[in-house]
Each structure stands twice: as structure tokens, then as C-alpha cells.
Write a protein that binds this DNA or RNA. Sequence first.
DNA 1: GACTATCTACTACATGACGTAGTACTATGC
DNA 2: GCATAGTACTACGTCATGTAGTAGATAGTC
Lengths: 137, 137
Amino acid sequence: MQVPKQRSGPKQILGDLEGEVLECVWQRGPVSVREVHSHLAARREIAYTTVMTVMSRLAEKGLLQRRPEGRAFIYSASMPRDEYWTEVVKNFLDGVLQGANRPLLSHFVESLAADDAAQLDLLADIIEEKRRKRACS
Amino acid sequence: MQVPKQRSGPKQILGDLEGEVLECVWQRGPVSVREVHSHLAARREIAYTTVMTVMSRLAEKGLLQRRPEGRAFIYSASMPRDEYWTEVVKNFLDGVLQGANRPLLSHFVESLAADDAAQLDLLADIIEEKRRKRACS
DNA sequence: GACTATCTACTACATGACGTAGTACTATGC
DNA sequence: GCATAGTACTACGTCATGTAGTAGATAGTC
């Protein structure tokens, strides 16, 4: 039995191409449509106007900002990658962590430790802090 | 600037009605379409066949299982709520926690503590465990 | 000026997911 | 036979996303 797959990375709550575009803007921005298109087209065929439409829609959604420069628009991300992800995770966790159980927390810690053991230490520090703060109130 | 809203609860990766149906099956299952329909219809107008379709689709997706009983089907959830949520969160976090940073972790801990301070202790325990395990290897 | 390249605005289509729900058919009970 | 109950089948609308062509305007080059 397969649980429906959550998408990962910036694609989380965006379409695949949207996520790819956003990632590109984070890495290279401020950028024009042409630049993003060049970058994407290096790997596959995609029409210029497809890229342009997606960027325009992302701007409508507020994830990208744009300013005119000559005849073109220059796009930048509306928030840094870290900030975006913090918000995404925040929203997700706020809805889910009520009644978190041990297997869930266990998995969370494992995911963290798998990447970088320093994260575990960081998390432990944060928790100590919070518990200290709690003990004082 | 508003980050697109993540949906919360069982609705996370399902539609609204799908999530509601799944929740109903968890609470009352094994159930027939009629029972789920009665429960949902208590609060608003909804056609029997709408409920039936949604349940049928959830079964196709593998989230519900069904067995014939007389002319009807009896539906059950394919996995318990906890298990489902663990999987959902697992998939989400696996894609996101690479390069987790301090603000993100801070928020995570805060979300946890806001609900139930016991969770913080539980998490601290789990971390200690993992760090001990790490120190032994 | 003509031509070419570049860019956006405008437009449109397809697909899939989801919610919605009626109709037809069948089986069962009275 | 009639009424009820249940599924199969069917269909439609909306929305999000990916896809991309065309038209028109602008700028640069010859």
C-alpha cells in the first residue's frame, strides 16, 4: 500500500516547473525570463513563452517580484529560500503536530541526524533553551 | 506578501471532502457509504452519490479498502490515522530537512511546545537516545 | 526604411484532480 | 408489483498547471 507521495523541495506546494523556476531565481536572481529560459532549455525543450507565463504567474502569486528594465522584466524572489521554506514548514507542521506521537518525533529526529549530526546538537540546544525558559515561567 | 497556505489536517494531500471522509472512516470504520453519507449530511446537503464516488476513489488510491457485504461495500482505512500521518510527515520532512536551519528548528520546537509541554520532554528523550547511540558508534 | 531579434500581452488548449450528482440497473423486502 | 437501497456508469464544472503560438511593439543593424 503506497501512501500518496509528497513532493519534495521547492516543489512542495507549487507545480514542478514553478518550483524549478523559483529555484532558478533564487540561485541566479535578479534575472530576466530569457536567462531562466536559457537555463531550463539547456536540459530540455521548453518554449520561451512557457517560462514567461510561469514567471508571470509566480509574480501574481507573490512569490516573485518584478521590475521593468527596458522592454523586459527583471524578476527576483520575494523572499530568500530559507525564509520561504521556514514558512512552508511552519504551515505544514502547525497543522500536523497536534498530537504528535513518538514514532513521528522519532522519525523527525532521524531525518535530521541522517543529514548532519550537528543538527542534532543544534536541536538539543534549542530544546534546552525552551525548557529553561519554561522552567522560569 | 502571503506565502501560499498549506492545508492542515488529514486534508493535507487530499481534497477537503476526501480528508473529511477519511477522518470519518477512521472514527467509525468499518463503514458503509450510507453511514458516512448520513454523518456528512447531518451538517450539510450532499448527495449520496458524491460520498460514494469519493470513497470509491479513495479506495482506488489505496487509502481505503473495501469488501462487499450484501449489495453494499464496507470500507475501512488502509492504515490507522497515526500511521498515515507519520508517513505524510515523513515524506514531507525528508524533502525539506536537508539544510534545516536554526529558525526552522526553533519553530518546530515551538509548535511542539505550544500544544503540550510533555512533547518537549519526549523529544528531548528521543534526542538523548539518538546521541547516545551515536556516541557508541 | 527594411529586416531581424527580442520582449510582453494576449490568447488558447490540454490534462488531471476534485467536487458534484443524476440516471440506469439490479437486488431485496414488503 | 412497488418501494427501497446500493452500485455502476456517466457527466459536468472549476481550478491549477503546463504548454505554447500569435500579434504587436521596440530596439538594433544594415
